[in-house]
């Protein structure tokens, strides 16, 4: 018998369809957050999910595409920079898979993932929000109050932004990560292209 493996075009064409699906799911995640009033942003979970299912490139490009499309339709041009944040999300997810920080049944394995998604990822978003968006307060009462409080007590613009972003990124990214792990655990094996 001649042995044949699935050839490159198959993986490539799957990616072509998977990437827009991730982008659309990110968008729809945002809508679902509005619908359920869940306390998260909800528009990076599909990037994590895509990375968990189809690997780093598909997840990163899918997340990036989502932000590109939003930037060119609703959010305005500079919002494309958030696409790089989505790439960072995919990268962190990828690291977590590689390191095995992704086992829901052994919650302590998630701790390093939480550190990456919390304090470390937020350094990046803080840079973006100051350099591209001026670093004002977020337009939600609680983070804005935190922002004002830190600014008042320390007078440090960067720190105020950082702490404010922590207050939104931590719940969002932690919950999104758990959600995407939960979903992956229910996805039939044959869809999962990433080798663990």
């Amino acid at each position: 018998m001649t042995e044949r493996e699935a050839t490159a075009p198959a993986a490539r064409i799957l990616a072509v369809v998977m990437i827009p699906m991730i982008a659309a799911l990110n968008y729809v995640g945002g809508v679902l957050v509005e619908l359920t009033k869940a306390p998260i942003w909800g528009d990076t979970w599909a990037t994590m999910l895509g990375t968990l299912i189809s690997g780093l490139w598909v997840g990163a490009v899918g997340g990036f595409l989502y932000n590109i499309i939003m930037a060119f339709t609703v959010w305005g041009l500079p919002a494309w920079v958030w696409g790089t944040a989505n790439i960072v999300v995919a990268l962190i997810t990828w690291i977590c898979i590689r390191m095995g920080w992704d086992d829901l049944r052994r919650p302590w394995t998630l701790i390093p993932a939480f550190i990456l998604f919390g304090p470390i990822y937020t350094v990046y978003t803080t840079m973006v929000s100051i350099l591209i968006f001026g670093g004002g307060p977020l337009w939600k009462p609680l983070p804005a109050a935190i922002y004002a409080a830190v600014l008042k007590s320390t007078g440090n613009f960067w720190l105020a932004n950082y702490v404010q972003n922590l207050s939104t990124e931590i719940p969002d990214k932690w919950i999104s990560y758990i959600i995407s792990l939960l979903i992956v655990s229910r996805v039939p094996r044959r869809f999962i292209l990433v080798r663990r």
Binding site: L25, G29, A38, L49
Partner: peptide, 25 residues
């Protein structure tokens, strides 16, 4: 509870979407 609600919607949606990915490819 709202996060659970989010899950209750997102899981069926994702699973059906993934099925579509392969067929469309």
């Amino acid at each position: 509870k709202r996060i659970w609600n989010f899950l209750a919607l997102v899981i069926p949606l994702t699973l059906s979407s993934l099925m579509k990915v392969q067929t469309r490819a």
